[in-house]
Design a protein around this nucleic acid. Structure first.
Length: 121
DNA sequence: TCTGTGACGGCTA
DNA sequence: ATAGCCGCCACAG
């Protein structure tokens, strides 16, 4: 069971993910920043995993748009091959262009599809 | 208890 | 483009 602090962090991540527009992506670092923990970018990934996997939360975890969160390098950073592919598909369904350089290396142009607070539309 | 790992990223060189 | 280092913390063994 996560500590109370991290529980709050998880909830912040959950809510911030809801603000990412369809068809746009943002980074782990940006979510961490907005959550008030700029150095905790890695924890965002953990939170996403937990939120998607664990039903033990007071809020609905089924609609966490985890696939809209990528690394600041514009890369899909999941380890599992299948999960990477799943993320790629989800993004493309939303109209995000995903380029593939080499085997299981997916890239998204942050300059085009990146969403950060302050961006409108 | 302690260690290693991870949906392990970001930054700098 | 890649490599090395720094940061954080939950969780499994």
């Amino acid at each position: 069971m996560p500590s109370q602090e991290s529980q709050a962090f998880y909830i912040a991540v959950y809510e911030l993910c809801q603000t990412i527009p369809t068809g746009r992506v943002t980074t782990y670092g940006h979510i961490a920043l907005l959550a008030g923990a700029p150095a905790n970018s890695r924890q965002v990934g953990t939170a996403l995993k937990t939120l998607t996997t664990n039903p033990n939360h007071e809020f609905n975890t089924s609609n966490v748009p985890w696939w809209r969160v990528i690394s600041s390098q514009g890369k899909v950073s999941l380890r599992g091959k299948d999960e990477m592919r799943q993320q790629q598909e989800k993004l493309e369904q939303e109209g995000v262009e995903v380029t593939q350089n080499g085997l299981d290396k997916y890239n998204i142009k942050l300059s085009e599809f990146g969403w950060f607070e302050g961006d409108e539309e």
